[in-house]
Design a protein around this nucleic acid. Structure first.
Lengths: 127, 127
DNA sequence: CTAGGTGCAAAGCGTTTGCTCGGGG
DNA sequence: CCCCGAGCAAACGCTTTGCACCTAG
């Protein structure tokens, strides 16, 4: 039986993800945690991000062709990434309709990774 | 001005993607092309896959947390990946509704990368 | 002739992992 | 006192890139 034991490093990683609402990458989280605990290592950050994501305490956003990002908001939702400034915006999407559509082909949906790429409001107004 | 010049290696890469309908990865394409031309290099395969995808002659499927796959079918469509056997299934999805939804937030959709992960018909029947 | 393409190998990037030591329970 | 977790660095998987040579036009 595998128990999960308390560690201040893990707490720090969790808190960092929950506090920074900009969908930080693992490297960014590493930098941020380092400001608090200058001895924490990359390996620890990655291990804890994986563990926390597995436990459902944080959300992993898989960005195609880029580093994964992490989100303290647990409620299932999707992301729109701006190709100019890299901003990540949350949005809701009804997973049900798609799931039913695929069920007719015999495919059982378990996880949806949808990332929309485009231009955000800010960048549109600048252009 | 940049012209695109003929090369037998590029033709081979294109043909390989168009012929193999299983959504091969770059590495698989490398292996397949090597059977025809044993001197072709990884670099050439990657360079040509990028070029062909840019020109819209093939489609790149970005698989979160895995190697990109390539598809000779140009018509926009999405993919369902089986977490057990890795099979990639095509499906259609109405991009319009989502695009309109995001437009209300001021976000301009340009590219949708949606990958559903789950279990395919085959694997479900085996389980 | 010359710009674009190739082969090769090294580097890049994000991430994982083996090892040994430290500390929670 | 046991074993999970941390720190460190090396390795990994996928992809890109610098360089010298080759070749289509």
């Amino acid at each position: 039986m595998k128990t999960t034991r308390f560690s201040k490093q893990r707490e720090l990683v969790l808190k960092t993800v929950q506090t920074h609402l900009v969908h930080p990458t693992a490297q960014e989280i590493y930098g941020l945690t380092r400001e608090v605990d200058p001895t924490i290592s990359m390996g620890t950050v990655y291990r804890n991000l994986n563990l926390l994501a597995e436990q459902g305490k944080i959300l992993r956003i898989k960005v195609p062709g880029g580093a994964d990002r992490y989100d303290g908001t647990i409620r299932p939702h999707n992301h729109a990434v701006c190709t100019r400034c890299g901003m990540v915006m949350d949005y809701d999407f009804n997973f049900e309709a798609l799931s039913e559509q695929l069920a007719t082909s015999g495919f059982k949906c378990e996880e949806l990774n949808m990332t929309v790429r485009g231009t955000c409001k800010e960048c549109l107004s600048k252009a």
